[in-house]
């Protein structure tokens, strides 16, 4: 573990306030979930009464643009259980970002129903149930790193002492202790993205939405952040929805890989991917890993040929 996980995130550390149910549930949660879609109706598990973090049913979204309609999402259904790590992969324009934005209530679907944490997407947003990480760090350049971390906390009305505590804890979590007083431009792209991840975690949402968070980073930094993210997920039991362009990244990180295809944006395959939770980058050389990667690749290719 190159950068190493800070002590702050040991589950038995009394400083870490994780919801009890999350701590207890994540062991079971990686097991299963029902995922389902109309294009290829596979129902993987029905028995578990597992609570769903995200429940998307028959959602479509059509953008009305100057040069016609764009079907960004077409009858998409997807169930994600608490504690899953789900990757979305597919060519540009297949609706991955739109999918995340709909779940985040940044965009309203044209039709279909959507539950986040058992409530409407709007309700979930108003109750600050999720943290969103964009492709770019989107830090506020006039705020120091510490103040950037405190921003959502200020907005949510955390006390000053709590803000300070959390800023320190989550900076440590992404290995940036000591950078409190720096301004964003004084940090590298990878560091900035870590700050934005810490910021999304700072108010401890159970759901993490990440839209190509490492897309702009080089391979080495990316590998490294992948390991860190995996450890974070393993230790906190959060549900993560993760958009990526990279097949190895998707296979390495996920419990489920959702393969999408464009025009209209839809799900063409959902692949289970249950490597041990304490996996390291080395598993990328194993035959199982390559087999899954191959399946994802085939799915992506199928999606493409549909088009051309």
């Amino acid at each position: 573990m190159a950068l190493g996980m800070p002590k702050a995130l040991k589950l038995d550390d009394p400083d870490v306030t994780l919801p009890r149910d999350v701590r207890e549930s994540f062991v079971a949660s990686s097991e299963l979930v029902g995922m389902n879609n109309t294009a290829d109706a596979r129902i993987e598990s029905t028995a578990s009464p597992q609570r769903l973090a995200v429940d998307v049913r028959d959602v479509s979204l059509t953008f009305e643009t100057a040069d016609g309609k764009v079907d960004a999402l077409s009858n998409v259904s997807l169930q994600i259980a608490d504690g899953e790590f789900v990757s979305f992969i597919g060519p540009s324009g297949c609706g991955k970002t739109t999918m995340l934005r709909v779940i985040a209530d940044l965009q309203q679907p044209t039709s279909g129903t959507l539950l986040v944490n058992g409530m409407s997407a709007e309700q979930a947003r108003l109750e600050r149930r999720y943290g969103y990480v964009f492709q770019a760090p989107a830090l506020f350049p006039w705020r120091t790193i510490e103040k950037n971390l405190k921003l959502p906390l200020e907005i949510m009305g955390f006390s000053d002492s709590e803000q300070k505590l959390r800023a320190a804890r989550y900076l440590a979590l992404v290995n940036l202790t000591g950078f409190e007083r720096k301004f964003p431009w004084q940090l590298s792209g990878g560091m900035q993205q870590r700050v934005s991840i810490a910021r999304a975690l700072s108010f401890d949402p159970a759901l993490l939405l990440m839209d190509e968070p490492f897309g702009a980073l080089d391979e080495i930094v990316r590998d490294h952040l992948n390991e860190q993210l995996l450890q974070l997920w393993d230790k906190t039991g959060k549900t993560v929805l993760f958009v990526t362009h990279s097949i190895p990244e998707a296979v390495f990180l996920s419990t489920k890989i959702v393969v999408m295809s464009p025009r209209p944006g839809r799900i063409i395959d959902i692949i289970d991917c249950n490597f041990p939770r304490d996996r390291t980058l080395e598993i990328r050389e194993t035959p199982e890993f390559l087999k899954i990667a191959q399946r994802v690749r085939v799915g992506l290719r199928a999606g493409h040929s549909y088009d051309e």
């Binding site: 506020f140 921003l151 907005i155």
Partner: peptide, 13 residues
């Protein structure tokens, strides 16, 4: 930036 505005929205500011 639209992204910064979106962020504020995700925090329901």
């Amino acid at each position: 930036d639209p992204m910064q505005l979106d962020l504020m929205r995700t925090w329901s500011a």
